[in-house]
């Protein structure tokens, strides 16, 4: 957050005509306004966040006294817990999927949509629609549509298109990808509207100049659109990378990590440890590990930026 020059101006102007005493009183009033929500934050996020750092170093069921075991949880996590290792691999797949598939879909949709006028508003709303649905509804819809005997596959089978009546969510080879597909269904359209909004801020002159130089549509996209919305793309790539370590809803609703751990994500693994097996200390260690990974991504991003990469 950089200081906004207009705020600075008004504040100095005010001091001059409000006087010192009033200024102090308004400062107090300001903090009286800020304190309530800050307290709520401290209690819900910051306090537990800090105590989580300690719990991660303990063996604790959540009741009674926590036993300090140093880095024991992390040793177990990285050397013995094969489920965590598998879950971590699945999260990497998840990240790779969401850094590519929705990005490509959204970029193509947005650039195609930016060129048309008639019907653009209707198409926009349609793209947007899945995003406003609760995750439970979109997940349920896809569990229905991906069912081998009653879903799309079965319907296509009846009209002669064979081979799609596969138990997508029940087969350990396809479960994770199917869940990612369902999650992406509600996500890509929203992403395309974000990109479209960014594209609409690109000056039209740039396109006119490119056309003047004889650029075709691909060249315009490559040399005008992409550089124009670069900050938005990079920001969304960064957020996607962070969010992919937090994904939970779709996995939990559709498979709960199954069949036999084939779609386990770090978050569902953590949920099971904490709330089904009551390993509070161990779950806190997983939470800390995930957060550190997300932190590393942000850190790497910031370092690259400092080094002069234009991102």
């Amino acid at each position: 957050m950089t200081a906004n020059p207009s705020i600075q101006d008004t504040s100095s102007r005010r001091t001059s005509f409000l006087g010192k005493g009033l200024e102090v009183r308004r400062g107090l009033l300001a903090w009286a306004f800020i304190v309530p929500i800050t307290l709520v934050h401290l209690v819900v996020v910051v306090g537990p966040g800090i105590s989580g750092l300690y719990y991660a170093l303990t063996d604790w069921s959540g009741i009674g006294k926590a036993e300090f075991i140093g880095l024991g949880n992390f040793v177990e996590l990285f050397t013995e817990d094969l489920n965590f290792r598998a879950a971590f691999r699945h999260n990497l797949f998840w990240m790779a999927f969401f850094l590519t598939v929705p990005m490509i879909m959204a970029l193509s949709a947005a650039s195609l949509l930016a060129q048309i006028r008639r019907g653009a508003m209707v198409i926009r709303s349609m793209f947007y629609l899945p995003y406003v649905l609760p995750s439970i509804v979109s997940a349920f819809t896809w569990s229905m549509l991906l069912n081998p005997s009653l879903g799309i596959g079965a319907a296509l089978d009846k009209i002669g298109i064979k081979g799609l009546d596969h138990p997508w969510l029940g087969d350990f080879r396809t479960a994770l990808a199917s869940i990612a597909f369902a999650d992406n269904w509600h996500w890509w359209g929203f992403l395309s509207i974000l990109f479209l909004t960014a594209m609409q801020a690109i000056p039209v002159d740039l396109y006119d100049a490119a056309k003047m130089d004889g650029a075709n549509r691909w060249q315009q996209f490559r040399n005008v659109t992409l550089p124009g919305i670069r900050p938005t793309i990079l920001f969304m790539l960064l957020m996607t990378a962070i969010w992919s370590f937090l994904a939970f809803d779709y996995v939990w609703i559709l498979t709960q990590g199954g069949p036999s751990g084939a779609s386990e994500l770090v978050s569902s693994h953590l949920y099971k440890q904490a709330f089904l097996r009551f390993e509070a200390g161990y779950a806190a260690a997983i939470g800390l590990t995930v957060s550190l990974m997300a932190g590393c991504i942000v850190g790497g991003f910031t370092i690259l930026r400092r080094r002069g990469w234009e991102i």
Binding site: V45, G49, I242, A283
Partner: peptide, 10 residues
């Protein structure tokens, strides 16, 4: 930006 899973258990 603090991930939910960091403080969920505590």
């Amino acid at each position: 930006t603090i991930p939910f899973w960091l403080y969920a258990v505590p």
